[in-house]
Design a protein around this nucleic acid. Structure first.
Length: 659
DNA sequence: GGGTGGGTCCAAC
DNA sequence: TTCCAGTTGGACCCACCC
């Protein structure tokens, strides 16, 4: 894209129009150092030129240009006093971060080399030494190093790859195989850090501080030993990076790829030198567009320049833009939406589209039921024959997860768009009832919800929570769509017992089917509960007595049977949550709790309520989804106003580890 | 007019 | 010959409400 001039006459304007056609797969990647970039660009351009996809890319590019232009204008409007203010803000931020710099940990990032391709070669040795890629004519998941020499790489359509390398062998993906080998590698990782964080099937983060200390061994040796172990276990090679935080470790693991390692010492000077010339694109979270903006608007190419120009960034970026603020404090992040989408030959046949929609609804419902999710916002995504993407959403009164409900509402959304020629349909459900567990039948009720935790307990949880944090999602070498599912599988193996949580979720489904949706309207969704601000306060406070006291206040002394049942169920569900989080220090066998839940055991629930206050104080605060939403809103409305005390992260936070 | 919820779109891998 | 994915989080904008 980035065509010169207006659509359609690009060739007339520039003699080498392909030079400005930059897609993700024309950028450098490990193993592509000697590639003739211009030749690749030209072929990709020629293959794409004139297609509907290409035209759409041009539209998108024009939009980005406009965005950059707007930002330039904004930048030009900043007065010297504004700039001086933001300069101070940036300096203060850097000082704060310097003060909190933590170089005491040693992180290792391990990344399998061309993982899918390597696994395929392992099972079919005749592929060895030949250029091959895993994927289809539409899209490649990864390419081996022989293929990369031709400019073939992940995220590239197969038909373009074939043009670049006519002898390229295409192998279809086989995720069972990759999962098997992934599990083998993880057994090795576990020897060094039982709480390692899986980024995706082919990469992981390990805190090797303890193992280095206990064995009095240098981190280089641990990295080598781990890589040897992976090779022995699987026959596959990997690369490793060692650094004081995960972000840097990830950058380091790419340096001596394939089958190599790089260690960045835990030393301030070494780090500053290392990042000074580091291209911003190397940083996880900075993609094509952000790189474009930083370069064009601010002239920022390296991380050092990013630090130097921190004031500009503070002035013009919301601090959360493009995930720039992600630092190294692991946090539990639960899934916020679930979706399915499929591409097919473009059609405007309504019957056919309805059929596709029904299939998607079925798939989505199955996935939701597996995870015990109920949501109330349904989004229909359409990609038209001209690659235009449309999203249409509806927020419902009730939480749904049955295919019938999903289809019913999705059909309405689709009908409103007809007639249209569509090549992709997607369905997405969000606004879950209390995150994964979903215990409250009332969308407005701030009860059983989410955990926002920190510290070591978190790190444990992180290894089995949904790894949706893009900091930890792999490079495009692997297919993230699959990664999500499979990291989910991995989580089941973790110390908190994913099977248990699945059961819990299943239980919450039962609750829902019994009486949830109807009661939303009758018992819970009244003014008293939806405007019960005190309840919200309670929930947000670490010293809170928990939501059940609030509920009791609400109910008063004349607790009717139905409310009592709800209260009981909520209480038990809450404890299931706590058990899952393993924060209460009380080990209730899941079957025991679930049995109580199933029979709505009042005695048990009331006993829990009595113990609530003493235990709750030692547990991690629970934030409701609504409350978190509110917190987000507050942060958002304060963006660019740096007087805020919590000091959200800026791009300059990147290279510091918060304590 | 600030806060909030809903809807749309984009960025990232 | 084949002809550009799938999933998720969140920013941004707008309408509405108090």
């Amino acid at each position: 894209m980035a065509m010169e001039g207006s659509e359609g006459n690009s060739d007339a304007v520039s003699p080498h129009p392909w030079q400005s056609y930059n897609t993700v797969y024309t950028t450098a990647k490990a193993g592509m150092e000697g590639v003739d970039k211009e030749k690749v660009q030209k072929i990709v351009y020629e293959m794409s030129k004139g297609s509907k996809y290409f035209q759409n890319e041009e539209r998108k590019e024009a939009f980005i240009k406009q965005k950059i232009e707007n930002m330039r204008l904004q930048f030009a409007k900043l007065s010297p006093s504004d700039l001086s203010h933001y300069q101070k803000v940036a300096e203060r931020r850097i000082l704060e971060l310097e003060a909190s710099r933590d170089l005491s940990r040693i992180w290792l990032h391990v990344d399998m080399d061309a993982f899918y391709a390597a696994v395929e070669t392992l099972s079919n040795p005749t592929l060895k030494g030949k250029p091959m890629a895993v994927g289809s004519m539409s899209m490649l998941s990864t390419a081996n190093y022989e293929a990369r020499k031709f400019g073939v790489r992940s995220a590239m359509p197969g038909f373009i790859a074939r043009k670049l390398c006519p002898e390229l062998i295409l192998v279809p993906t086989d995720f069972k195989k990759y999962t098997h080998y992934s599990d083998l590698t993880r057994k090795v990782f576990q020897r060094y850090d039982p709480n390692f964080i899986a980024g995706s099937l082919d990469e992981a983060y390990l805190d090797i501080t303890e193992v280095c200390r206990e064995r009095n061994v240098k981190c280089e040796e641990i990295a080598q030993e781990l890589r040897d172990g992976v090779y022995e276990e699987t026959g596959l090679t990997c690369s490793a990076g060692v650094a004081p935080n995960r972000l840097l470790a990830k950058v380091c693991s790419d340096i001596n790829k394939p089958n190599g390692q790089y260690v960045l010492p835990n030393d301030r000077m070494a780090i500053m030198t290392f990042i000074s010339s580091l291209p911003i694109r190397k940083i996880g979270g900075i993609g094509k567009v952000t790189e474009h903006i930083l370069k064009d608007v601010f002239g920022i190419n390296t991380c050092e320049q990013m630090l130097d120009k921190g004031s500009y960034l503070c002035a013009l970026f919301s601090q959360s833009t493009a995930g720039l603020g992600k630092t190294d404090s692991p946090q539990v992040s639960f899934r916020k939406s679930i979706s399915n989408e499929r591409t097919f030959s473009a059609t405007e046949d309504e019957v056919l589209l309805q059929k596709k929609l029904a299939e998607l609804a079925e798939m989505l419902s199955t996935d939701m039921q597996k995870e015990g999710l109920h949501g109330r916002t349904l989004t229909l995504k359409l990609k038209t024959a001209s690659f235009e993407v449309r999203n249409r959403a509806v927020t419902l009164q009730n939480y749904i997860n049955s295919s019938e409900d999903i289809l019913k509402h999705a059909s309405k959304l689709l009908k409103a768009e007809l007639p249209v020629s569509v090549r992709l349909i997607g369905l997405r459900v969000s606004q879950f009832n209390g995150d994964k567990c979903g215990a409250t039948p009332d969308p407005t009720q701030k009860t059983i919800t989410n955990f926002i935790t920190s510290g070591e307990a978190n790190r444990k949880n992180n290894s089995f929570s949904d790894v949706t944090d893009h900091d930890f999602v792999s490079d495009t070498e692997t297919d993230p769509s699959i990664d999500v599912r499979h990291t989910g599988q991995l989580h089941s193996r973790d110390s908190f017992d994913g099977n248990h949580s699945l059961d819990v979720n299943h239980q919450s489904c039962t609750l829902w089917k019994n009486d949830g949706a109807e009661k939303v309207q009758t018992s819970g969704n009244d003014a008293a509960s939806s405007h019960h601000s005190g309840l919200t306060e309670l929930l947000g406070s670490t010293s809170s007595q928990g939501q059940f006291e609030g509920k009791n206040v609400n109910d008063g002394s004349n607790l009717i049977e139905e409310d009592r049942l709800n209260s009981c169920q909520e209480t038990i569900m809450s404890w299931l949550n706590d058990y899952k989080c393993s924060l209460c220090g009380i080990e209730l066998p899941p079957s025991f709790v679930e049995e109580r839940l199933e029979h709505s055991d009042f005695h048990f629930a009331e006993k829990l309520q009595k113990e609530e206050s003493s235990i709750r104080q030692t547990s991690i605060p629970i934030h409701s989804q609504d409350q978190r939403h509110r917190i987000n809103r507050q942060s958002k409305s304060k963006k660019q106003k740096f007087s805020q005390k919590e000091g959200r992260n800026t791009p300059i936070d990147y290279f510091f580890v918060k304590k």
